[in-house]
């Protein structure tokens, strides 16, 4: 069986509805578990005191904000190459979830930054990049909303997503060049295998990240199913109007 079979809207909907309750439950357990573990059962750090604990919301949401855009990019490519409607709708569904994650990351960052750096906002490269990512999300969603015909909208937003990804990446490096930052380095360096976060904080963080990931998947699936049904209603309406 090929994975592309799930590009059939009916199969996709059936499978999604079957696994959605599990996903929602799992994400609730993981997010709550990670947060409670993190907030209540880890020590305060010397330098950061209790403020460090916002990391359990901040890092996972930031991760999902970027993943949301990556998912849009992959789905857009699949739509452009293989013309699977579900893929186009999934890209559309990921955008609002991604934008909310971006806002959460920016907000928690500001709340954390206030006691740490003494300011709600600085034009640090990481913060600035997220703000720019937020603007890209807005443009993408606005274009989806402005075009009535779904296929046209899917094509045009996919191309915008490809072009936007290139410019988002360029902006990322341009911003680095433009201002050296205050923000600490990444919390989870993948390549080196080393960690900048101590073990006591790291484990609940991983749990919270897994929770946010499952939550992201669940939200995107639910939204995609809604969009599929919306699309189906539109087709039925069109058929009825012609009959």
């Amino acid at each position: 069986m090929s994975i592309w079979e799930f590009a059939n809207p009916r199969k996709f909907t059936a499978l999604s509805l079957k696994i959605l309750p599990t996903l929602v439950g799992l994400s609730a357990v993981l997010v709550l578990g990670g947060l409670i573990w993190g907030f209540a059962f880890t020590p305060n750090a010397d330098k950061f005191e209790s403020t460090v604990k916002i990391i359990y919301v901040h890092v996972p949401s930031a991760l999902m904000a970027i993943n949301g855009w990556l998912m849009m990019l992959v789905c857009s490519l699949i739509w452009l190459v293989r013309r699977h409607h579900v893929s186009a709708l999934a890209a559309r569904a990921a955008a609002p979830v991604g934008v909310v994650m971006t806002v959460i990351a920016l907000f928690t960052g500001a709340v954390w930054g206030q006691p740490m750096w003494g300011t709600w906002w600085v034009w640090d490269p990481r913060l600035t990049s997220f703000l720019i990512l937020f603007l890209f999300y807005l443009g993408y969603m606005a274009l989806w909303a402005a075009i009535e015909d779904t296929e046209t909208a899917a094509d045009l937003t996919s191309i915008l997503c490809l072009v936007g990804s290139v410019f988002a990446l360029l902006s990322r490096y341009a911003v680095n060049f433009w201002n050296q930052g205050l923000h600490q380095g990444t919390s989870i360096p993948v390549a080196t295998g080393g960690r900048t976060v101590a073990d006591v904080y790291f484990l609940p963080l991983v749990v919270a990240m897994a929770g946010f990931f499952v939550l992201f998947v669940a939200l995107v699936l639910a939204r995609t199913v809604t969009l599929i049904r919306e699309r189906r209603l539109a087709v039925l309406d069109a058929q009825e109007a012609r009959a």
């Binding site: 603007l135 807005l138 606005a142 915008l160 410019f167 902006s171 341009a174 911003v175 060049f177 433009w178």
Partner: peptide
């Protein structure tokens, strides 16, 4: 809509140009 889409794309050019 055009402004909303184009302005974020202008960011890298603006950064280097103004620099």
């Amino acid at each position: 809509l055009l402004s909303l889409i184009v302005l974020p794309l202008y960011v890298p050019t603006l950064i280097f140009g103004a620099e």
